[in-house]
Design a protein around this nucleic acid. Structure first.
Lengths: 333, 333
DNA sequence: TGAACGTGTGAGATCGTTCCCATACGGTTC
DNA sequence: GAACCGTATGGGAACGATCTCACACGTTCA
């Protein structure tokens, strides 16, 4: 059962104040008293009540993580899962416990919950509407955004350098000799898909000798959508003499690749494929997918680091934190 | 900033008690007063302090979820990610917030943290040592175990019916005409791998006309391990005239399958492959992997449901909750 | 007329800690 | 021997809510 410090104090024959001093480790206490108190603590397996502590210290040492996404998978999404793994590890190391929430309706409910819990800070993941940011701002709670987009220069956010990554992919494919390329471009209202496409185009334009470029827009960024779109465009791909395919994320790339494989195409022989995100799955596929890596480990780690600084009131934190995107070359190119 | 109920009361011209009655919605309050108070609450965007509430009510409405695993991926593991997604959704619906913790050292630290937070209950995921269970027991906190093993009949736990699933897989392969089979068997100290193997063997024995059966033990249950073991046993597989491969989880199966594909084997033509877990990846692979499904959605949902009942003090909850394992037939068989 | 009841409100204690302050004691220092 | 120090301890208020109880009013009914 749960004891309280009063019982501990009584059994150790001291006052609450003294017991508190021993247990929290600050303030005077003689060796004998210290010993007596710790013995009782040990014997009763006493756990100090963090709720009461938070009450007086006005700090909970908890942070909230909210993932905004329309549909599951949420935590089981390969990208967010990895990010959350990294956040949890970093939070643990800094002494924070994490409330994890998902929000499918882009509502303020999860946020409200966490505000009521008086978390010390908030990490907002993925795309979220402006109203959420405005709302959070009002409460003057430390917060930051990971993998989302905003035009608000005040908001601390962490993103991968998608434009450069897209350009890298283009340069790489061009270097392999590809001059006829098709792009499957995920939802353009998403910052990352938008920039990856723009970067890829820029990379190609800088080369100048591209023979053919087709952009297939995709309203979603799922495996199924990649598969479907490739099915619809397989003939055009063959007839147009395309030799390479870039998709703005791995799911789309894998879906497209699976269709090509089912139709008997050899990859990378007849078509090279490159994706983006470098999700775990990509390395396991056959052929393993070449992909632009996003450093989710660093992003997770740094988001906790930055939030902690914010909580501790450090000034002048960098608002925009971009992470380099490097190509991981595998079997599909 | 954060206001408190005293300020609200003052601004509304009532006492704390009355404000509390209006805000929490229980107890008498005249329409005018009710109106005045809610207006102030609205204007100041007042959020009741859950910490203080927990203090007096002795209930936090928080639950703790701990995933015990030696190594990452943890949340990003396809199995646990899905389970956690399901738990989060169910918890939200029941008004619980979730503390998510991972524990790589099979230690008591995460547990201690959550006990200090005075969570209402605990969901323990994956394999955990006996000492953890014994420890948790001492604190008389509602808890249950998902996807772990225990010989303690007192512990409420939720698992998939791995023995039956293994047998199903065997029956299914036998039905397709396979008489020479190889098994890649993951760590036998894991309940699930152990039972899947046992079930599979039983399934075959019941048929009686098996010509050849080889069991390749695997110390780990990773993709890389499956790949490596298949590399070591590819010749034996060919020479032995094996026609089917069963692995005790999808990761092993996919690793093995990838090696076979790289060596030019046709699947399912020359070798049928079947895995276990039905992780998202399996359906996306080419050829898509036939796999025994584990109903993680139901397990997540029910774990919250059961924990909630436990918290509310309902008696006579079923200790052992087994979930049926059904085969999802795809391209690899 | 007054007892009983329904409605509405506020004062005070309480939950489990921490922290400020008062106090006490033995030893230096002037 | 008075003043001061460092060490050691305990009393009481505070954190922000809820909850029990007391009380005050107006209505109804015997």
């Amino acid at each position: 059962m749960s004891h309280n410090i009063k019982e501990i104090a009584k059994l150790a024959g001291v006052s609450r104040s003294t017991a508190s001093r021993v247990i929290s480790g600050k303030g005077y206490a003689s060796p004998e008293v210290r010993e007596r108190v710790t013995a009782v603590v040990e014997r009763l397996q006493y756990k100090p009540n963090a709720v009461a502590r938070a009450m007086v210290s006005q700090r909970t040492h908890n942070i909230g993580v909210i993932v905004f996404r329309e549909r599951p998978p949420i935590v089981s999404h390969p990208l967010y899962g990895k990010l959350i793994d990294s956040i949890l590890t970093a939070a643990e190391a800094k002494g924070y416990s994490v409330f994890l929430k998902t929000d499918q309706e882009m509502s303020l409910r999860s946020t409200d919950y966490l505000l009521e819990q008086r978390v010390d800070g908030l990490i907002l993941i993925s795309r979220l509407r402006k109203n959420v940011i405005d709302y959070v701002k009002k409460f003057r709670i430390p917060y930051l955004m990971v993998n989302g987009s905003t035009d608000d220069p005040e908001v601390i956010h962490l993103v991968s350098d998608d434009e450069a990554g897209g350009a890298n992919a283009a340069t790489y494919l061009h270097g392999l000799g590809h001059r006829r390329l098709m792009i499957i471009a995920g939802p353009q209202e998403h910052r990352s898909h938008n920039l990856r496409l723009a970067g890829f185009k820029r990379g190609l334009e800088e080369k100048g000798d591209i023979e053919k470029l087709a952009v297939v827009p995709s309203p979603e960024s799922t495996f199924e959508q990649g598969y479907r779109l490739m099915a619809e465009n397989a003939e055009a791909f063959a007839e147009g003499g395309f030799t390479a395919l870039f998709a703005t994320n791995d799911m789309l790339a894998l879906g497209a690749m699976k269709l090509l494989l089912e139709r008997g195409w050899s990859i990378p022989g007849q078509a090279a494929v490159i994706g983006y995100d470098n999700i775990g799955l990509s390395g396991m596929y056959f052929p393993a997918l070449t992909s632009v890596n996003v450093d989710l480990d660093a992003m997770g780690r740094d988001s906790v680091e930055l939030l902690d600084r914010l909580i501790r009131g450090e000034p002048d934190l960098s608002k925009l934190n971009e992470y380099p995107s490097e190509i991981v070359i595998r079997q599909s190119t």
